Simulated scan of single mutants.
Amino acid sequence: MQNLWGKRFAALIIDFLIVILITWVFSGIVYPLLAVTNAFGILNYWLIVTAVIVMVYFTYFEGKLGTTPGKSVMKIEVVVDDGEMNYQKAFIRNISKILGIPLILDIIVDYIAGNSKLRYLDEVAGTDVKLKA
Rank of each mutant, 00 (worst) to 15 (best):
T68N: 06
W5Y: 06
I101P: 07
P102R: 13
I92E: 05
L121R: 05
I42C: 04
I20F: 14
K132Y: 02
V79D: 11
Y31M: 13
P32V: 03
M74Y: 06
I42A: 04
V19T: 00
V78T: 06
G126K: 09
K130S: 08
E84H: 08
M1A: 09
M74D: 00
T23V: 10
A11K: 02
Y120G: 06
F58G: 03
I112V: 04
D15S: 00
I20M: 06
E62D: 10
L17V: 07
K64N: 10
K132W: 03
S116D: 15
D81M: 14
I14H: 04
T67F: 05
I29K: 00
S72L: 07
S116P: 12
G28K: 02
A10S: 10
Y60D: 02
G114I: 13
V56M: 06
I18W: 06
Y87A: 00
N3V: 14
L33A: 11
G6Y: 11
Y45W: 12
S116V: 14
A39K: 14
T23Y: 12
N94G: 01
R93Y: 01
N94A: 00
V124H: 14
N3T: 12
S27T: 15
G114C: 13
K130P: 14
I95C: 01
A39S: 13
I14V: 12
D82A: 15
G6R: 10
M85E: 05
L43E: 15
F40L: 08
V73Q: 03
T127N: 01
W46F: 13
N38S: 15
I29H: 02
A90I: 08
I14Y: 13
K117S: 12
L17I: 08
T127L: 01
F9N: 09
F9P: 05
G66N: 00
K97G: 04
L103M: 12
L103D: 04
M1N: 09
S116Q: 13
I48C: 08
L12A: 14
Y57I: 02
Y57W: 02
S116Y: 14
K132G: 05
Y111D: 00
Y31L: 15
I29C: 08
L131D: 05
K89L: 06
A90T: 00
N86T: 01
V73S: 03
W46H: 14
V36D: 12
N38H: 15
L43G: 11
L47N: 05
W24E: 04
I42D: 01
T67H: 04
D128I: 09
V73W: 02
G63A: 00
M74L: 01
D106G: 04
L12V: 11
T23F: 07
T59M: 00
L4E: 07
I92C: 10
K71M: 05
V56G: 00
T23Q: 08
K75S: 15
Y31E: 13
R119D: 02
K71E: 01
L118G: 15
V36P: 08
V109G: 05
T68G: 07
S72K: 07
D110K: 13
K130H: 06
I98M: 02
F26W: 02
A39Q: 15
P69D: 12
V79T: 12
K75Q: 11
A35G: 12
T67L: 06
L131C: 11
L131Q: 10
I42H: 02
V30N: 03
F16G: 03
K132C: 05
G100P: 05
A39N: 11
V25Q: 10
I108A: 09
M1K: 13
N38W: 13
